[in-house]
Amino acid sequence: MPDPQDRLVTPQAAAEAASKRFTRSEAVAAALSLAWLVAVAAYITFSPGEGGALGLVMTLLMVFLPIALIWIAVTTLRSVQDLRAEATRLQSAVEAMRSAYVQTQVQPSVEKKLEEIERATKSTETVLATFSSRRDVSLTQPSADRKAALASPRRGADAGDQPALALGTPAEDLRPPLSVADFIRALQFPESPEDKDGFRALRLALEDRTVAKLIRSAQDVLTLLSQEGIFMDDLKPDRARPELWRSFAQGERGRAISGLGGIRDRSSLALTAGRMREDPVFRDAAHHFLRTFDKTFSDFEKNASDAELIELADTRTARAFMLFGRVAGVFD
């Protein structure tokens, strides 16, 4: 396929072509003028003479009028060719401006994408640094709501590597259980660096081994989704009834709980499905997150009220579950 630039005529080339046409036109005009003068001279020489002023005027008109008409035609042709050359030059300028406009439209979109990825990475690094460096007492105090988030803390292998105190009591047992309010707040993640309540709840959640697994897996998938320009705050899922959430916690799957897949944003669903097909790391992180959410939510549902289930469904972690659940076919 030929390059569109090859079809463009530069102003210099147009001027050169016009100059050549001008030379040919003038040569033709000069030849016609000369031929006419020769014909008039021959006529005057071989025709009988006419006297008087009228004869002189007629002779001059006969000599110069055709020549004037010839050069008027040449001048008109020159003007037309100048206009054509100017039109060619303007066409080249318009094509150049169009090409520059297309490039300026494409480049900012690429730069915007890179900036979004950079912001998401920096945000993740900031949160991770805060988790590992903040030891403020205000960030580790439990909330006033002492209702436990999980019905039965997991033991066994999860607690096998915990340091034992006197009489074999694990250090984890000395801490109060994570409350429902702190659990829900942690799954929402901090709204900003100034969100002290969010960081306090997140700190407490990370001290619970079971909840910490869900928090870290959710953080992994949220970071991966942000690289595709998918942010949970932009998604507006349909609200599901608490009965559907309880059915899911009790093992129900398929169309019976299809109302939980409230994410309808086609762009986000398509981008997520494409990334899961092409990126095995992304796919493994998504499936690990779904399994972890399933196990932890089953424990949470036993102690949660309907209002608390609705509140949890509005967190960023729950929205990520809805998105990945629809893509993975949990609700089919």
Score class of each variant (00 low, 15 high):
residue 239 R to C: 03
residue 59 T to Y: 07
residue 172 E to C: 09
residue 297 F to L: 07
residue 140 T to I: 14
residue 102 V to A: 13
residue 6 D to Y: 05
residue 135 R to Q: 13
residue 285 A to E: 09
residue 317 T to K: 03
residue 57 V to S: 10
residue 12 Q to Y: 08
residue 244 L to N: 05
residue 322 M to T: 05
residue 166 A to C: 07
residue 174 L to P: 01
residue 257 I to H: 00
residue 114 L to T: 05
residue 65 L to M: 11
residue 272 T to Q: 04
residue 109 S to K: 15
residue 32 L to F: 06
residue 20 K to S: 15
residue 310 I to F: 09
residue 157 A to R: 12
residue 54 L to C: 03
residue 44 I to S: 15
residue 175 R to N: 11
residue 64 F to D: 04
residue 218 A to V: 03
residue 330 V to N: 02
residue 243 E to Y: 10
residue 56 L to I: 11
residue 183 F to I: 03
residue 98 R to V: 12
residue 63 V to N: 05
residue 194 E to N: 12
residue 50 E to V: 10
residue 107 Q to R: 14
residue 58 M to T: 13
residue 57 V to G: 10
residue 249 A to I: 02
residue 181 A to Y: 00
residue 70 I to T: 09
residue 213 K to F: 08
residue 80 V to K: 14
residue 315 T to E: 03
residue 296 T to F: 02
residue 248 F to V: 05
residue 26 E to P: 00
residue 30 A to K: 08
residue 179 S to W: 04
residue 51 G to K: 10
residue 248 F to I: 04
residue 82 D to V: 12
residue 36 W to Q: 07
residue 32 L to E: 10
residue 276 M to G: 00
residue 266 R to P: 00
residue 138 S to V: 10
residue 265 D to Y: 07
residue 24 R to Y: 10
residue 14 A to L: 06
residue 103 Q to T: 14
residue 186 A to N: 05
residue 132 S to G: 11
residue 101 Y to L: 15
residue 274 G to C: 01
residue 181 A to D: 11
residue 75 T to C: 11
residue 291 R to G: 12
residue 262 G to E: 03
residue 259 G to F: 05
residue 127 V to A: 12
residue 275 R to D: 02
residue 144 A to W: 09
residue 161 D to W: 09
residue 70 I to H: 03
residue 301 E to F: 08
residue 272 T to A: 06
residue 173 D to H: 09
residue 98 R to L: 13
residue 69 L to E: 08
residue 3 D to R: 04
residue 294 D to A: 04
residue 59 T to F: 08
residue 21 R to C: 07
residue 95 E to F: 11
residue 254 G to Y: 04
residue 93 A to D: 14
residue 289 F to R: 05
residue 206 L to R: 15
residue 36 W to F: 04
residue 43 Y to S: 14
residue 303 N to L: 12
residue 310 I to Q: 13
residue 184 I to F: 02
residue 113 K to Q: 11
residue 66 P to M: 07
residue 29 A to W: 06
residue 129 A to W: 01
residue 101 Y to I: 13
residue 278 E to F: 07
residue 11 P to H: 03
residue 66 P to Y: 02
